[in-house]
Design a protein around this nucleic acid. Structure first.
Lengths: 337, 337
DNA sequence: TCTATTGATTAGAGCGCTCTAATCTTGTAG
DNA sequence: CTACAAGATTAGAGCGCTCTAATCAATAGA
């Protein structure tokens, strides 16, 4: 059995309480005793038992994190960032996935809750709002990539409408006028991005073209094929705003397959600035969600509530930015066949 | 304060012990009582306190997971899979990163240990072997993508030598004879892959060409440029075995930039079969590490030890497989300029 | 010399649960 | 009607720690 505080106390010739004080480096311990305790602990290889501590102190250093999908690099990045912040602040992450199923997420959420965590961060959850409310009654909850009306829950989102607008402005600035959006369907944030696209187009006095698609490369390919079937070469959109990077990559594939050049004939903008987009081979112009900032803000919001420093809900809406790479170029009538 | 077992007991008019039995669905509880307890629990929104349970029962349902780098899709996939398995088996994951620094990993490992987890899984850790030994004295430890001599630790690795051999055999089978390996340098598993490459080449009676590189797309580009500088077009290798997929993508970029076609002039094989490779736009021929199996085996090995069903160490060496896509083609002398 | 005063140390209750051993119910056989 | 086994229930100690309140030691002031 691993040594307990009692063992350390015995070896150091002091009481258990004193060991506790030393372990929490209380200032009211004489240097001599402190040294003795530390040495005894060292010799025994003693390490405080987090769960026992948590139980006794009625506080928790555990932060629950439920991720929509770790395979999605966006979330993986955020979790990495959260982990860094948590370690720095002395918290531990317990992690969960809901498999994008409300039922499984509900279970996962319950598992997190059963640890009596100090707080919970939900990354793009698909559980109903009521489930979030239930969780929020037990501990502070922060939502990332998901909105809510609940006033006890903080949220961190990127401004998808602004992001799409950025893409449209960029293309229009390059002289494009026929621009299509490959919509993400039911994916998180897709609706916003579409709305932003439509609004931006109209602001420029242009007619928004929206093709229903998905946030996958296959989806992007299909959407482009539909576009190719629906328009003559002369009328084909010369600018594409994809729902996300994967979609954009698929779109580019289909475009090239059809003998069109990117960006010579068609300019393409992605969304998310995944590591994929940064690959020199693709060099995709895309919209960057400030993931690091999102993670940091989510963490800070949570900790503020944990420490009871704030009760008002906070709604972070982060501004995305345009990352210009090699898949967008000025519109040129001559470039077309 | 959230309701405790005592509250439920009071409301159901039974003792705390009975509630405990019901919560662990013991068979020795009358149906009437069970129903009463369950109802009371429901009404109060009671949920057992995992930590208290763990403390009292001297058992843990916590599994510690330390990840080398979550941003690496390979690890993210494994964690996802571990999570699925853990949830199914009633365990909870507590997750950590070491930032690829031995010191930080050592801290992270300590954090995990302080939870008195049932077991620990280390994904490609960079801590010294001694640290792993220390951990292994506290609870079962399984290593993924890392070997050890410690007889108390299980390991799960893919057979990197076999993987490279697969790539070489494939290229040789297509008629290629001048084949180069873009080495991953100090990256985990890189040495094995290189050894496998060299051995396979010699087995075919061919001279192995090894270019020092990195597991990044930039690395791949640079390596190819060196190759282009060192060889005349006629003598340039017609087959490339990259250290991983990213490297391969970079290599392809540089090749195309130099006016060479893939796979027309040069065939390229990646390693890892990341989601990147599967993108139709790239369609990279690559070596697949059976991640799902690796995760499953790691989990099973751990659970076996947790349950005390085995004390002998187990060394899983998984066989990678070749995934042929569009970046490899038969050698053709005419294809060359 | 005696009492405050401050600082260091400890006793002991208790966190929410489990688990063993003891107790209480029944039902059944003698 | 009693004895007893089997099943259902509970008392109570204890998991490893924290924390309050009490105790103890040492110094200072009168």
């Amino acid at each position: 059995m691993r040594p307990t505080m009692e063992d350390v106390a015995a070896r150091a010739g002091v009481s258990r309480a004193l060991v506790s004080l030393v372990m929490n480096n209380s200032p009211k311990v004489s240097e001599a005793r402190r040294a003795a305790v530390l040495r005894a602990a060292e010799e025994l290889g003693y390490q405080p038992h987090v769960m026992a501590r948590s139980l006794a102190s009625r506080t928790s250093t555990v932060l629950g994190v439920m991720v929509n999908d770790l395979r999605n690099a966006f979330f993986a990045d955020i979790v990495e960032e959260l982990d860094t912040a948590a370690q720095a602040a002395g918290f531990d992450l317990i992690l969960n996935t809901g498999g994008r199923s409300p039922t499984r997420e509900w279970n996962a959420l319950h598992n997190l809750l059963s640890f009596r965590p100090a707080g919970i961060i939900l990354l793009s959850p698909v559980v109903p709002a009521s489930a979030i409310q239930v969780a929020a009654r037990q501990c502070p909850v922060v939502l990332v990539s998901r909105t809510t009306r609940a006033s006890t829950v903080d949220t961190v989102n990127d401004d998808g409408e602004a992001g799409s607008a950025l893409a449209v402005d960029h293309l229009v600035g390059l002289g494009h006028r026929r621009i299509a959006h490959l919509d993400g369907g039911g994916a998180a944030g897709a609706a916003q991005r579409r709305r932003g696209f439509e609004a931006a187009m109209r602001r420029h006095g242009l007619e928004p073209i929206v093709v229903r698609s998905e946030h996958t490369d296959i989806g992007g390919e299909k959407a482009v094929r539909e576009l190719l079937a629906a328009y003559s070469r002369a009328e084909l959109p010369t600018g594409l705003v994809s729902g996300n990077d994967f979609n954009a990559v698929g779109a580019i594939s289909a475009l090239e397959e059809a003998g069109l050049r990117v960006p010579g004939d068609v300019s393409v903008v992605g969304y998310d600035n995944t590591s994929l987009a940064a690959l020199r081979h693709l060099s995709l112009t895309t919209i960057d969600q400030p993931r690091k900032d999102m993670a940091r803000l989510a963490f800070e919001a949570l900790i503020e509530r944990v420490r009871g420093e704030r009760t008002e809900p906070v709604r972070h809406l982060l501004h995305p930015s345009l990352v210009v790479r090699a898949t967008t170029a000025p519109f040129s009538a001559t470039g077309r066949s």
